[in-house]
Every structure is written in structure tokens, then in C-alpha cells.
Amino acid sequence: MPTLTVETLCSEAALFSAAESRHPEPLLYGVTDGKAVGTYLEQKFKLYLKGRYEFVEGNSASGIDFPGLLVDVKVTSIRQPQSSCPFKSARQKIFGLGYSLIIFVYDKTDNSENRSATLNILHTIYVNAERTADFQMTRGIRNILENEGNQDDLIAFMLDRNLPIDEIEAANIANDILRNPPIQGFLTIFNALQWRLPYGRVIERAGQEEGVIAVYRANLLGRKAPNQIQHLE
């Protein structure tokens, strides 16, 4: 079997999304637990891929679904499009999560006549790792740098934004920012024991920003623009 790549992962995610949107599933009838729905879809997608490609499966140690590709799968309802991810470092909010995301956004409907549920996949979005930082945090930092900001300005900004760090770490991060300014991120990241990730912005911007790719939209198989394909890997 061929080896799974990021490009084929996205292509297959589009096909899977279209097929799943037509599939009545009795196991999900009456289920309101978003985690249960997410687990169902993630496992089904990986099983779908296992019959077609070779790839390294994620586990609790790796923390992501496709460690060989550095891609994690997220599944969320359109009614409250958000999920969580492990908190590793406050730096993730500035420099990105360290891996890419493929996000399935669904609308679940129950059919009482045949006692089944359908997951209508409305959006499937690929967010490149370099775009997984917090939108407002990276925008603020980039504005400071564009306006001749220095280390003190960056430290004050990070502490004002309640980034979970002390002043020593803020100074270390500020030095890293000056050496390696962050790329504009497109996630919204809430501080918590786990990062909370609302997806409203990436749903809005998918297909409009480099590295935020509309893999699939409801009733339309997404086609990646040529200038986006080169940024998938």
C-alpha cells in the first residue's frame, strides 16, 4: 500500500466527508455527547485510511492522531465549533501548536423513522502547523514589531494578555520573538488546563488564507488551489 502523505490525507478527508454525510448511522441515534460523536468519526476515518495507506497511528504518548505527519484530527459540532488540546507550553499561543490540524465540522440530525443519525459534514479544514498560533496574540506581537517595539513592549503585552508565564519566561520569549518573529496564526486559544480552541475564524477564513485550507465544504468536494498545495507538507 502507498504511504499516507498530508496531501493524500486531505484528499481522502474530502471523499470521506462526502460519503459520511450520506451515511445513516444507528449507533449515533439519540447520542448528544459530542465526545462520543468525535470518537466515532475519528476512529471511522482512521479505519477508512488503514485499508488504503500505510501510516503510523497515534497513541497516548504521541498525543496526536498521525504522528508521522504531525497532524491531529479534531471533530466538532457546528452548533459550538470548538475542541480542546493538551497544554504543553505558553509558547504554543505565539509560535503554534507544533503540529497541523484537520478539522471536521458536522451537523447531526436524527431520523426517528429509521432510528438512525446522519453526520452532515459541513466543513473539513486543514490548518498548517505554522498557522496554529493564536490570532490576536500573534497580530498584537507583529504590530508591536512593526512599530519599533522592543523587549519591554513585548513583555508588557504578553503579561497584559494574561499569558500563563512569569516575567523571566516572558523575557526569554520576547528575545525569541525578536530573533524569530511569529507568523500570523488563525486559531483562537483560550487559557485553561487544556487549551480551548474555538474554530469560528478558521471556518470563516478557510480557502482565503495561506495555510488554512478548505478541504471540503458541504455538497462540494474541495479542490486545493495550486498556491496552497505546496504548503500542505
Rank of each mutant, 00 (worst) to 15 (best):
A170V: 09
S116H: 06
F135N: 14
K224L: 15
V105Q: 02
E25I: 15
R91K: 12
V212Y: 05
Q43M: 13
A170R: 05
C85I: 11
L49I: 00
G34Q: 05
T3P: 03
E210F: 14
R179E: 15
L15S: 02
F190C: 08
R22W: 04
I141R: 00
E54R: 09
E130N: 13
C85M: 08
S112E: 15
S116Y: 02
H231R: 11
E7F: 11
A133K: 05
L178V: 10
N191K: 12
I103Y: 02
Q194R: 13
F16L: 02
N147H: 13
D160H: 12
G38H: 01
R161E: 14
R142A: 12
T39N: 07
A18M: 08
Y99P: 13
A206K: 11
I103E: 08
A13T: 00
N227Q: 15
R223Y: 14
R79L: 13
I141C: 08
F157C: 09
P182K: 00
I165N: 01
Q92E: 12
T188H: 12
F45C: 03
I141K: 08
G51K: 01
K35Y: 14
A19D: 12
A36T: 14
I213T: 11
F45N: 00
R91P: 10
N114C: 07
P164A: 08
V31D: 03
V202K: 02
N114S: 07
L178F: 11
P24H: 04
R201A: 10
S84N: 12
V105K: 00
E42R: 01
S21G: 09
Y99C: 03
N172F: 12
G211A: 06
D134R: 05
S60Y: 04
Q194V: 12
G200E: 15
F16G: 00
A129I: 00
R79V: 06
P198E: 15
L97F: 05
G222C: 07
A117M: 03
A36L: 07
G149D: 03
T138N: 14
Q151A: 13
Q136A: 12
R217W: 05
D152Y: 11
E148D: 15
V71L: 03
D134G: 01
T39Q: 01
G200A: 13
L27R: 04
A225K: 14
S60D: 10
E7P: 02
Y48W: 07
N175M: 11
K46N: 06
T124L: 04
S100H: 02
V6K: 00
T39K: 04
N150E: 12
L47G: 14
G34S: 08
V127W: 07
D176G: 04
I155E: 08
K44V: 10
T118N: 09
T32C: 06
T109G: 03
G68H: 00
K108Y: 07
V31N: 04
A36G: 09
V56H: 07
V105P: 01
E20G: 03
F186V: 02
C85R: 02
N59G: 06
F95H: 07
F135C: 06
R179M: 14
